[in-house]
Amino acid sequence: MADQLTEEQIAEFKEAFSLFDKDGDGTITTKELGTVMRSLGQNPTEAELQDMINEVDADGNGTIDFPEFLTMMARKMKDTDSEEEIREAFRVFDKDGNGYISAAELRHVMTNLGEKLTDEEVDEMIREADIDGDGQVNYEEFVQMMTAK
């Protein structure tokens, strides 16, 4: 299944994987998964984290390695993001709930994920998604960005 991913997608997933893999040992533990999910405003229980890991832990060693992570991402993409997942993601970014993602809100979430971005990089990300040019990202623009192939 992971063989249907483009090189660009694999590179993006590698970057995402390293955000989860806090200690850089090449595997994601339940603790690391929990840290990232909490930084995104989720509050999973230990059991939920274990279930999430077990779902993709092909070799049964209790952690997720990069090939397992790729399989999980490929699977998720095949079920292409349901509207509800996209709306949920939008809410994570839209901290003040005004229906727009500002540069400050984007920077806040990315920083929580451990991504240190310059102001230019954040502005560039907003510009790429900002179709109507108002300097922020509304829900429609967010959907376009998330579903762009």
Rank of each mutant, 00 (worst) to 15 (best):
T6I: 12
E46K: 06
S102N: 13
Q4M: 07
V109T: 10
M125A: 07
I28V: 09
T111S: 08
T71P: 13
F20A: 01
T45Q: 15
L33E: 00
K149I: 08
K76E: 13
L70Q: 02
T45K: 13
E121I: 05
S82G: 13
G41H: 02
K31L: 08
T30I: 12
N43S: 14
L33F: 14
D65I: 06
L49P: 01
S39K: 04
L113A: 02
G135K: 06
E8D: 11
D132I: 00
E140Y: 12
E83D: 07
K76Q: 02
V122K: 08
E15V: 08
A16V: 11
E121S: 00
A2S: 10
G41R: 12
D96A: 00
G114Q: 02
D23F: 01
A74P: 08
A74K: 05
G135T: 03
I10N: 13
T27M: 10
V56I: 05
T35F: 09
R127C: 01
M145E: 06
D134H: 01
A2R: 00
F13R: 01
F90I: 07
A2N: 15
T35A: 11
Q144L: 14
A103W: 01
L5K: 10
G41D: 13
E115F: 01
D94A: 06
D25C: 14
L19Q: 13
G99Y: 09
M146L: 08
I53D: 06
E84T: 01
G62P: 01
G114P: 05
T45P: 06
M125E: 03
E32I: 07
F17W: 02
M125S: 05
D21H: 07
F66S: 10
L113P: 04
E46Q: 13
F17H: 08
K22Y: 06
V122I: 11
S82K: 06
I64P: 15
K76S: 07
N54G: 03
D123F: 11
A47L: 07
T45L: 11
A58D: 09
G41W: 10
A58T: 13
N112F: 02
M52V: 10
M146R: 02
T63H: 03
T45E: 15
T45Y: 02
M73E: 08
D57L: 02
D81L: 06
N61H: 01
M72Q: 15
D65R: 02
D21N: 09
A89D: 00
K76G: 01
V143T: 00
Q50K: 13
G97S: 10
T29S: 06
R127K: 09
G41A: 12
V56T: 04
